[in-house]
């Protein structure tokens, strides 16, 4: 990151000429408060936790190390990977890690497919049905996650709507509550609005003329979607994908309410290890495992943004 970053303002071509390469304390100072807040209450605890997970139990980690059970302490100055070794050789953790990844992938694929379908429908055909669909997809944004989890739980439970409805048809519908199916349903349900908003607005931003030019060149529906619309809305799609995946991979409420006791997602495990099992160090190790996955996704997002800047000749 250097000081020669491109102009950020949207209105390129205005008359104002601004100097670059100068240190501008005003902007820096204005931007500082949220950054400091994050540094102190997120960055610092993360560093602290990293130290704790590596067996550094002094300083601010002292209290938690005393309260917690099964804490691996570092005897050398370099820290110890004992906690990591323990967690990563724990079969339950490994299963849950697999489950977490699987749920994340499945939910993300479903969410993005639905959002893309709705967005394309809205873009290419429009009309009342398309608007109805996109409106529907945004509804979950209005509902707190605790409630939606609870609602989904009762809907797919043993005496829920799905079972009742199919019972009238003489079909035995499976109980999905407290299964990973319900977790995926809940994840899709809660993630759909953001992805839909992001993707529909991205698709809407593709100028109609670009699509018409492709039709004029002889492209059919599939080619238009694959060669013009998706590449041109690449950034919003990537943002939607990464945000959805990051949201699901670290989620707690949805798997806590909807999932089985075991196997379940790591968000629930973290909470269990911290409060129920009183093993904070193991909990923190799991947090870092999830963090690594989420960081990879975040990196994809940052890369996509820079790529788009480059493509548009900005960078």
């Amino acid at each position: 990151m250097t000081v020669t970053l491109p102009e950020r303002t949207a209105d390129a071509g205005t008359t104002s000429v601004r100097k670059r390469r100068t240190f501008r304390p005003v902007g820096f100072l204005l931007a500082l408060p949220p950054v400091l807040l994050i540094l102190v209450f997120v960055g610092f605890p993360i560093v602290l936790a990293l130290g704790f997970s590596l067996g550094f139990t002094g300083g601010l980690n002292h209290t938690v190390a005393i309260i917690g059970q099964n804490v691996h302490e570092s005897t050398s100055g370099f820290g110890t990977l004992a906690a990591y070794q323990e967690v990563f050789s724990n079969q339950r953790f490994l299963t849950d890690l697999g489950v977490t990844v699987l749920v994340t992938v499945l939910a993300t694929v479903l969410v993005i497919s639905l959002a893309l379908g709705i967005g394309l429908f809205l873009k290419l055909r429009g009309g009342r049905i398309a608007r109805l669909l996109s409106g529907l997809a945004i509804v979950p944004l209005f509902i707190p996650v605790v409630i939606s989890s609870w609602a989904i739980l009762t809907f797919y439970s043993g005496d829920g709507f799905m079972r009742s409805f199919f019972a009238h048809l003489g079909v035995e519908f499976p109980v999905w509550s407290f299964t990973m199916v319900a977790v995926i349903i809940g994840s899709v349900w809660t993630s759909l609005p953001f992805a839909t908003l992001m993707i529909t607005s991205g698709l809407q931003a593709v100028p109609d003329a670009m699509i018409e030019a492709a039709r004029d060149a002889g492209a059919g529906f599939v080619r238009i979607v694959l060669s013009v619309i998706v590449p041109m809305a690449f950034i919003p799609i990537i943002i939607a994908t990464t945000f959805t995946a990051i949201g699901v991979v670290g989620s707690f409420t949805v798997p806590y309410f909807l999932g089985p006791n075991s196997p379940n997602m790591l968000g629930v495990d973290m909470s269990n290890y911290f409060s129920s099992f009183n093993q904070p160090q193991q909990s923190v190790v799991m947090a870092f495992a999830v963090f690594v996955i989420a960081s990879g996704l975040a990196a994809l997002y940052v890369w996509a943004n820079f790529r788009s800047a480059k493509e548009q000749g900005k960078a």
Binding site: P207, E212, D216, G218, G220, M232, E311
Partner: peptide, 21 residues
């Protein structure tokens, strides 16, 4: 016929060049 099937080709007002190609 749809635009993709017609023997005509169009030059658009804003050129409509695909920016990713």
């Amino acid at each position: 016929l749809g635009a993709e099937k017609r023997p005509s080709a169009m030059v658009f007002q804003n050129y409509a060049l695909w920016p990713h190609m």
